[in-house]
């Protein structure tokens, strides 16, 4: 995982639920390349079309509330979202994103201080966000060691793969 992230912001409001991130009528899709085309369709059908890989989502409170559908972070990740910053995250969404290796951090009030088109540079280990144009910086909440270790591994899947390969290896030896 990159710990230094730079990108342009997409600003979203409070309580963006997973039905807005990924509408229920597409839940039968299983291919991430198909899934990503419906990303944020409940907010605006245009977002996915105009998205540039590397963009950073900056949202208000309770981002990802509602259904536990993993399609929501799968869609965001495969669309190329590099980081999600929010005032707060709903718990299941937070875990799902972390498991997929999609970084997310909490920075209260940031969405109100930005305008569309702003670019940020973010240092995840130092927990600092900088507005590229003005140089203004903001402290964010530290991700936490446990979450950071999952992100650094690229998500939970590589960690589990390693754990099970090791087990098999031990059994053989």
């Amino acid at each position: 995982m990159k710990t230094q992230i730079e990108g342009a912001v997409i600003i979203l409001k409070d309580n963006i639920d997973t039905d807005q991130i990924y509408p229920g009528r597409y839940l039968e899709l299983v291919n991430p390349e198909e899934i990503k085309t419906h990303c944020l369709e409940g907010v605006s059908p245009e977002i996915a079309k105009h998205f540039i890989p590397g963009d950073i989502i900056v949202a208000g409170r309770n981002f990802g509330c509602g259904s536990s559908r993993e399609h929501a972070p799968i869609a965001l990740k495969h669309l190329g979202v590099s980081l999600i910053i929010a005032d707060s995250f709903a718990r299941i969404f937070y875990r799902n994103a972390l498991n997929l290796g999609l970084p997310l951090i909490i920075c209260k009030g940031l969405s109100e201080k930005l305008k569309a088109g702003d670019s940020l540079s973010v240092d995840l280990t130092q927990s600092v966000i900088k507005i590229a144009a003005t140089g203004e910086t903001f402290d964010c909440e530290h991700i936490g060691e446990h979450a950071l270790s999952i992100l650094e591994a690229g998500g939970i899947k590589p960690l589990m793969k390693k754990r099970f390969q090791k087990k098999e290896g031990n059994e053989r030896s």
Partner: peptide, 17 residues
């Protein structure tokens, strides 16, 4: 409630953090 990948770790290990 948990997501799919969390569930996959439960299916493999019977445990979750």
């Amino acid at each position: 409630g948990i997501g799919a990948t969390d569930m996959a770790t439960v299916m493999m290990t019977g445990e979750l953090w």
